[in-house]
C-alpha cells in the first residue's frame, strides 16, 4: 500500500468544505480505506471547519487552513492547522441526546459528533496557530472490490 500523505490547502470559505470532501473520498478510495471511515473523517472535518470559518475570524481577510491526512498502520491521522482565534475543542460538552423533541437543544451537536466519530481529538496552540489532531482507526469493513 502506498503510504503517502494527503495535503489540502484551503481558504476560510464554507464552500471549500465540499472540495475537501472530494479530496478525502478520492484519497481514501486510493488507500482502500473503508467508506464508513472516510465518512467519519469528512463529517469531523466539516464540523470543525464550519466552526472555524463561521466563528474563528474577527476580520474579513482571507485566511489559509492546512489539512494533512496521514495513514498509519492502524489509523488515519488528520491534522488541521489554522490561524483563527484560540479554541480548545478537545473537551466539547455533551448535548442532552435523551431530551424530547420540544426540549432538545439546537446547538452543540457538531463538536459532539466530532468526538463520537473520531477515536481521538487533540488540541494545542502554537504561537498564533491552532493545531488539531484527529485519529480514526481503520477498523471499518473493507470496501467491496470495484467492478
Amino acid at each position: 500500500m502506498n503510504e503517502e500523505t494527503l495535503e489540502i490547502s484551503l481558504v476560510n470559505d464554507l464552500k471549500e468544505i465540499a472540495r475537501v470532501a472530494e479530496h478525502i473520498d478520492e484519497f481514501c478510495a486510493s488507500q482502500d480505506i473503508a467508506l464508513e471511515v472516510a465518512y467519519a473523517i469528512n463529517l469531523a472535518l466539516d464540523e470543525i471547519l464550519t466552526n472555524t470559518i463561521s466563528y474563528g475570524y474577527d476580520d474579513d481577510a482571507p485566511h489559509r487552513i492546512e489539512i494533512s491526512v496521514r495513514p498509519e498502520v492502524e489509523a488515519l491521522v488528520v491534522v488541521i492547522v489554522d490561524d483563527s482565534a484560540a479554541f480548545d475543542l478537545s473537551n466539547a460538552p455533551t448535548p442532552d441526546t435523551g431530551a424530547s423533541l420540544e426540549e432538545r437543544p439546537l446547538g452543540g451537536l457538531g463538536l459532539f459528533l466530532v468526538h463520537q466519530m473520531m477515536d481521538s481529538v487533540e488540541y494545542r496552540r502554537e504561537g498564533e496557530r491552532n493545531i488539531v489532531t484527529l485519529k480514526k482507526n481503520k477498523t471499518g469493513e473493507q470496501r467491496p472490490e470495484d467492478g
Binding site: Y39, L43, E102
Partner: peptide, 18 residues
C-alpha cells in the same frame, strides 16, 4: 451526506410540524 447544520434544520422542522 448530512452534517449537524442539516440535522439542526430537520430538528426545527419536526418541531414546527408537530
Amino acid at each position: 451526506y448530512i452534517s449537524s447544520a442539516g440535522l439542526r434544520v430537520l430538528l426545527v422542522t419536526a418541531r414546527r410540524t408537530q
